[in-house]
Design a protein around this nucleic acid. Sequence first.
DNA 1: GTGGTCTAGACCACT
DNA 2: GTGGTCTAGACCACA
Lengths: 119, 119, 119, 119
Amino acid sequence: MTLEWKEDQPIYRQLRDKVAAQIIKGSIKEGEPLPSVRNVAVDLQINPLTASRAYQELVDEHLVEKKRGLGMYVLKGARSKLLTLEKKKFLEEEWPEIQARVQALGLDVKDLIKNLKKK
Amino acid sequence: MTLEWKEDQPIYRQLRDKVAAQIIKGSIKEGEPLPSVRNVAVDLQINPLTASRAYQELVDEHLVEKKRGLGMYVLKGARSKLLTLEKKKFLEEEWPEIQARVQALGLDVKDLIKNLKKK
Amino acid sequence: MTLEWKEDQPIYRQLRDKVAAQIIKGSIKEGEPLPSVRNVAVDLQINPLTASRAYQELVDEHLVEKKRGLGMYVLKGARSKLLTLEKKKFLEEEWPEIQARVQALGLDVKDLIKNLKKK
Amino acid sequence: MTLEWKEDQPIYRQLRDKVAAQIIKGSIKEGEPLPSVRNVAVDLQINPLTASRAYQELVDEHLVEKKRGLGMYVLKGARSKLLTLEKKKFLEEEWPEIQARVQALGLDVKDLIKNLKKK
DNA sequence: GTGGTCTAGACCACT
DNA sequence: GTGGTCTAGACCACA
C-alpha cells in the first residue's frame, strides 16, 4: 500500500521504523516471522537489497533473529525492549528539539492542544 | 560559536536554517545584509561554496535578495513570511507525526505539553 | 559532439537547456532515465558537479525525478509541460523584445524572410 | 524611471544598450553630450562606477568621445555606425538563433513575422 | 552502479 | 569588496 517514501530519510530506515512500529503495536508478535524479504520488496516496490538492509538493522538491534533457511523471527522481549528504547530516544533527543522549535516559532500551548483535538 | 554540525543533514541546509532562525529572532533585520559568503565561511570553518549554497536556498525561497556586487539582503516581509511558513509546516506536517509517535509509544501528549508549558 | 560552450551563460544552464531540448525533440522519452551524471560529465568533458547542477535545475522544475540509487528519470508530462512553458516564455517575453529591436533598427520584414530562406 | 534591471545581463551593458538605443532613436543627437555620469547614476539608482563603465564601452566602440572636464559627446557618424553594427549583429548572430528556437518549439516563423508586420 | 556533499583553490564578473 | 562558476578529487549513502 505504501508506495511513497519520505525524501529526507533512507528507505531502509523508514522500513525498519515501520516494522518496529508493527512490533510495538502488536501486529507482528514475538516469536512470529517477519514477512519475507522478497515479499516485502514486491509489496512495497523496493529493491530486495533495501528490504534486506532494513531487516539487518533489526537484527543488529537484537530485536529480530535470522533463522537460516526459515526467515527472520521477532525475538522474545523485543516489544518491551523497543518501547523502552524508543521512549528514551524520544524523551531525551527528540522532545527537547521540539520544545525549542515550538518556542522559536512563538507557538502557544493552546495552539498545539487545539490542533490535538481537531485530530 | 557553532563549530559543530549534525551528521544527518547537509551543512548548507543547517546554515540555511540557522540564518532563517536569526531572521525570525530578529538578530538579522529586514533590509539588512547577510554576512558575506566569505566571512561566514571563515567564521564557521566551512567552504565558501557551501555557505553560498545555503544563501542560495534563501534566495530561492524569496526571503533574501541578491544585490549584484554588493551582497545578499533580507527582503521586506521575510520575517513574517518565514514565521507563517514554518508554523504551518510544523502544525500540519510535523505535529501530527509527533502525536502519532507519542501515542504509539504510549506516552501522554498532555503531560508533555504541560511539561512544555512549565519550561 | 558538443565540446564547446558559449561564454555568456554558465555551462550548467546550457546543459539544462540541451537536455530540455532533447526532451522536447523526443530523443529522451518520458519515463526514461537521463544519462548518468558521471557519463554525461565524461562525454561533455565537464566536471560531474557541473553536470549535477544542470540536472538539479530540471528536478527543481519538476521535469525530472530522482530515484534514489538509480538515477534521474523524465517525468510523465514533462514534454508537454516544457513545450507550454517555453512557448509561453518565448511569446510573452522574448518575442516582444525582438519586435521592439527589429523596429528600432528599422529592419524590414523582407530582410528577415530573405535571411530565413538563406538558411 | 527605470529602476529595474534584468538579471541575465550586467547593468553596465544594459545601460550601454539603452544609450545606444537613444542615439539610434535620435533622442540624443550627434555632437550633443550624454547626461553626466553622476546624474545618470542618481537617476537610475546605480553606482557611478557602473555608469562610467557603460560610457566607457561607448568610448571603446568609438561612438562617443570623452572631452576632459566637459563630459561625453556623441561622435559624428555614431548613429549610422551603430545602425550598421547592430543590424549586422542582429541578422548574423541573433536572428539565426531565434529561428532555431522558434522551430524547436514548433512555432511558425512566418506567422510571427506577419504578426510583426501588422504591428 | 547511482547521486550528494564537501573541500581547496582558481578565475571571473560586477559594483 | 561582493557573489558565480568551474575544476579535481575525495568520501559517503543509497539501491
